[in-house]
């Protein structure tokens, strides 16, 4: 795809564990700048774990993740602060602060990290809320919003600092098709207007193929396919085909283990 030198994010043989359970196996890929990179996979395939490594919420071993050519395992606290100021993150739940209004939520990073005056911040907040379709909701508390609205407000907050890199976890889940399409268009516009690099974790096929410049398909912690949407679409890998064609899991696949577990149930 792209070399390590030109890519904004490079991942090399990344492995990840929860306790003793390994959840990611030798993940390697590159994310070129100014593109929308979609990470796809079924539930439990390790997408969110990979996402957490990329945003620095899960420690990474040496020489596994490089951001703009720098090994993040060697970053000091000040490097992380700089990185976090240059990214925007939308979490799966929206992660809004319940004690603040939407306006306060979106304004928070601007108030903390910039010298901007309150009227400029107010205008910026209104703009961001308008972009995500929440104009007029600025004085609402998160508890007064639906799940989809919370997610959109979370996106507005992620965009507050006009980040260079935007990480979005499941943007369309829980949204109606019209709003989801609106968010897809917004992500494309953000890439065009600001030259943003957007990393999207999703399992919504339609949305992924609409917005993605590059794609990564994961299953059980491993990469099944990586490349342009066309190359992924033409993949011969059976699990990729099954995922793309939305075929249900074949019965009998783990039948032996299932039967063994049934036999080991103790009778009372």
């Amino acid at each position: 795809m792209t070399s390590e030198a030109t890519s904004i994010i490079s991942v090399r043989d990344l492995q990840s564990f929860y306790g003793r359970r390994q959840v990611l196996f030798d993940i390697s890929f590159d994310v070129p700048p100014h593109c929308i990179f979609v990470i796809m996979g079924v539930s439990g395939s390790g997408k969110t774990t990979l996402f957490r490594h990329l945003i620095g919420l899960k420690p990474t071993r040496k020489n596994a993740v490089f951001i703009k050519g720098e090994d993040i395992s060697e970053w000091k606290s000040s490097d992380w602060q700089k990185y976090w100021q240059s990214i925007g993150v939308l979490f799966q739940s929206g992660a809004l602060f319940n004690s603040m209004t939407l306006k306060e939520n979106v304004a928070l990073p601007l108030q903390v990290h910039t010298e901007l005056t309150s009227d400029i911040i107010d205008v910026m907040v209104e703009m961001k809320l308008y972009m995500v379709g929440l104009s007029g909701f600025s004085d609402y508390m998160p508890a007064q919003l639906s799940g989809g609205m919370k997610k959109r407000a979370g996106l507005a907050r992620a965009l507050a600092m006009d980040p260079e890199l935007l990480f979005v976890d499941e943007p369309s889940s829980g949204l109606d098709p019209i709003t989801a399409a609106g968010l897809d268009d917004l992500l494309i516009s953000l890439k065009d207007a600001f030259g943003m690099t957007v990393i999207v974790v999703t399992h919504e096929l339609e949305s992924a193929f609409k917005i993605g410049d590059y794609m990564l398909v994961m299953d059980k912690g491993r990469i099944l396919a990586c490349g342009t949407p066309e190359s992924v679409k033409n993949s011969k890998e059976s699990r990729v085909r099954q995922f793309l064609e939305r075929r249900a899991e074949e019965a009998g696949q783990d039948m032996e283990a299932y039967l063994q577990r049934l036999c080991s149930v103790r009778s009372r």
Binding site: T114, L116, D119, I120, I121, V123, M124, M127, D162, F194
Partner: peptide, 11 residues
């Protein structure tokens, strides 16, 4: 220009 720039123009 970023959105802060646009905000300045609006103001």
């Amino acid at each position: 220009m970023d959105t802060a720039g646009v905000a300045l123009l609006v103001i």
